[in-house]
Design a protein around this nucleic acid. Structure first.
Lengths: 165, 165, 165, 165
DNA sequence: CATGAATGAGAGTTCATTCAT
DNA sequence: GATGAATGAACTCTCATTCAT
């Protein structure tokens, strides 16, 4: 509350002109973030490129986010959903995760069809990728990670899909 | 604080005879937990079994923990290290993670030597496994997971190591 | 404040062009109410009827008001004069009370003269009636009353005046 | 809140050691007051005296309370029950009122039996007395009353019961 | 004249920490 | 050593009032 008020140079009461509660403000921030993320994602996916190219681009974008220092929003989001056990439908975190999984699934399938990827269960693999990213994210917030760690994971992800022997 | 003094049947003031702050108390709890976890882990690894057996056992143990409802300690640990950016050496979370990675690395190497596993970079793979588990853990706390999700990930982990075609 | 600007479809600032404060606005409302109440009262008193008829009519009117649910204005008026100990001359509540007492006094005297009522001290009796009504009003707002309770009191009031044995 | 904290010379937080909320504190005050009032009442009723004596004593006691200046508690009690429309059973105000009515009813009946009083409906008369007192109380808080006004009402009440002609 | 976004003091409540006993 | 009553700063939220437009 205090931080928001200070950062926005608004009065405490002024906040309530735009949001009914701090919780609502927070959810609004989440929604905004989510939409912006979707925009970036969409822009990438529209490009005329191979599945591998798109996946690489996606992972690069994720890496950039992971390296962003002092990602206090990520922390705040986690803390929010730790406490507020909202139902699946209203859980923005869950929705973002599921959406990303679906997009990745389609991407992997496309890659399999084009012969770029080898994958028995695109859906499970998509979820696996997202969980690795989630793992990196939480590791970044709670214990710190290096760029090397991220790169290594990206390599493992790509190798798991191309596995040409 | 209240929960601790209630559970320990100690006075609020009494707590400060043993710990200078709630932060220190929390770190002590973590240390204790960590030691106990190590014990369990060691016991498993001492058994006379194949690398695949041990890994399976390890993953099963992890699954059990993931399914434990209301894992408030996990949440508390995350929240603690979100706020207290302690140096690597004192970050118990990091230490536990690194220890687990090392043990897994040895295990994978053993498996590779015995011909059970195929893996170019055991260290990276070990870290990958831990990040997936971390991803599952945070997903469990913040958006909820199903047993099927866990099983699926376990399968992917094992397949990534055996990949016999 | 919010309720007023919503109901009047005026801006918050606009209100201050007509009233210096909510207090002044409230007093203006009271004054208006008081004038309207006087009008009703006058209309009744002008009718050509016996004193008993008029008193009965008056009590019936009071009963109707007492039964009006959610009488938030009454509550607001009480709360206002609880806090703002205004001098007797400016106390609208007091003025209304005194006016009503005077009117009732005249009415009782008329009744005594016509032989309808028996009353040693019309002024005290008039005040007594008003205090009973005040008691019913506050009871209605703070603890709830039934129609039976009102009727009972009305009977006692009338019996106190006619007492023919 | 602030007033209580200032008056008790206690910290804001300290209040919550004894009461879970300001509302609970308030209800506790009410209960205490109520008990003390009962004590006084009981002491009077135990005395060996005629019904008229007891009633006179009761009215004298009520007069004393009515004359107590700055009766902010009475105001606070009214305001509380204006806002908190609690069910009849939990409404302390209502309970006190009903209890007083019952006691008065018994007293009047006793007086009727002993030939001191004349009264067709002791219950209604008891309620009438209480409503007059309630009317005096609210008048005292909101518009101010004089000792003469009180005395006048007391006379009317007594005359209404003895009515010897 | 009129607006409504913005203010800021004050409300009730929580909780890690302290200190007289 | 041990207690637990007490503290006080911080939290979220409300609302009559103001002022740049």
């Amino acid at each position: 509350m205090k931080d928001v008020v200070d950062a926005c140079e608004i009065s405490r009461g002024g906040l309530y002109l735009y949001f009914d509660s701090t919780q609502e403000l927070f959810l609004a921030v989440l929604k905004k973030e989510s939409e912006e993320a979707d925009d970036i994602f969409s822009r990438e996916i529209h490009e005329d490129a191979t599945a591998a190219d798109i996946l690489t681009l996606f992972l690069k974008e994720q890496k950039k986010e992971l390296l962003r220092k002092k990602d206090t929003l990520t922390v705040a989001i986690y803390e929010f959903f730790f406490c507020h056990q909202v139902p699946k439908k209203e859980n923005v975190l869950r929705q973002q995760f599921d959406t990303a999984v679906k997009v990745l699934e389609v991407l992997i399938k496309t890659g399999v069809e084009s012969g770029e990827f080898v994958c028995a269960s695109p859906k499970a693999m998509a979820r696996n990728i997202m969980l690795i990213l989630e793992g990196l994210k939480i590791a970044s917030c709670s214990m710190g990670i290096t760029e090397e760690m991220i790169d290594e994971e990206m390599v493992i992800i790509m190798q798991g899909l191309v596995k040409e022997d």
